[in-house]
């Protein structure tokens, strides 16, 4: 197995600014000793309780921050900052409200040496891939949540990154739209052959999407276990979620996750925000 992404003993610490109930600055362990290999073309889901450093890990993969210890390797060489070889899809869509759907998708393409016509053509192609043909000229506020996330996915896919990093992208959507987009994602993943790292706190979503599910411990986040998901008949229109094998995986992951949630509760952990500040869990 050739690893597309390798995490080698990755740790991340934040300095917490003094607050009312904590008078001195403290160092906070968000991630510790993460070792993980992700194969090219794999779809890996990352499951963890809130405050387990999922977003911190994604920031490290995306190059938005640097690890305090260890290394993040992409194709065998350490990452240096963000780049167009990785695309990030955020939970809150993060669309540019002053740009139309089409112009949002071309945003990343503007970093490349492409003519305007070529950019527009490519953007239309990807809007069609996510099922939004005909919505090119809409502004984000004219789109529903599901449509916004489709635009965001198209934006990240349009510059054809090898790796797609997704940070709880469907968490803000209603159940029906979420299931629909999960199927769309699987279809897109098969079409593009991209490596996908998908963060979620939903066990069902992790099982449904992932070829493997990596379970994180509560803070400091470590890899608790990596579970291989081997489900037959993913392509068919069957109700996979009620398949006995699916239910068994679901239960297994539920046990793993709930040990961690209980542990976090006992420790009275507070949630770490991506910028290193703390908020109530």
């Amino acid at each position: 197995m050739t690893a597309k992404i390798s995490l080698r003993g990755v740790g991340k610490q934040f300095v917490v600014r003094p607050s009312r109930d904590q008078t001195h600055a403290a160092v906070l362990d968000a991630l510790r000793d993460i070792d993980l290999d992700i194969a090219a073309g794999e779809l890996l889901t990352l499951l963890g309780p809130s405050g387990s450093g999922k977003t911190t890990l994604l920031d490290l993969l995306g190059g938005l921050s640097t690890p305090s210890s260890g290394q993040v390797l992409l194709d065998g060489s350490p990452t240096t900052g963000p780049g167009l070889d990785r695309g990030i899809v955020f939970q809150q869509y993060a669309l540019f409200p002053w740009r139309t759907a089409l112009a949002n998708v071309t945003f990343g393409l503007e970093q490349q040496n492409l003519s305007r016509a070529a950019r527009d053509l490519r953007a239309r192609e990807y809007l069609e891939l996510v099922g939004l043909a005909g919505f090119e000229d809409r502004y984000p506020h004219e789109l529903s949540g599901g449509m916004k996330q489709r635009v965001a996915i198209a934006r990240s896919l349009a510059y054809e990154p090898d790796v797609l990093l997704m940070d709880e992208p469907f968490a803000a959507l209603d159940a029906q739209t979420r299931e629909q987009l999960q199927d769309e994602l699987l279809r897109i993943w098969r079409t593009t052959g991209a490596t996908v790292v998908f963060i979620t706190h939903s066990i069902e979503e992790a099982v449904y999407l992932g070829q493997r599910v990596a379970v994180l411990t509560s803070r400091p986040g470590r890899i608790k276990e990596v579970v291989d998901i081997d489900l037959p008949g993913r392509e068919g229109g069957t109700d996979l979620r009620s398949d006995p094998a699916f239910v068994a995986y679901r239960h297994r992951l539920w046990q793993l996750l709930h040990e961690e949630i209980a542990r976090a509760r006992d420790a009275g952990h507070r949630r770490i925000q991506p910028d290193g500040t703390e908020g109530a869990a």
């Binding site: 995306g62 938005l64 540019f96």
Partner: peptide, 14 residues
């Protein structure tokens, strides 16, 4: 400015 938008732009290597 929404910090989320800045993160999104930075993630594209701007």
């Amino acid at each position: 400015v929404d910090p989320m938008l800045i993160r999104a732009a930075r993630s594209l290597g701007l």
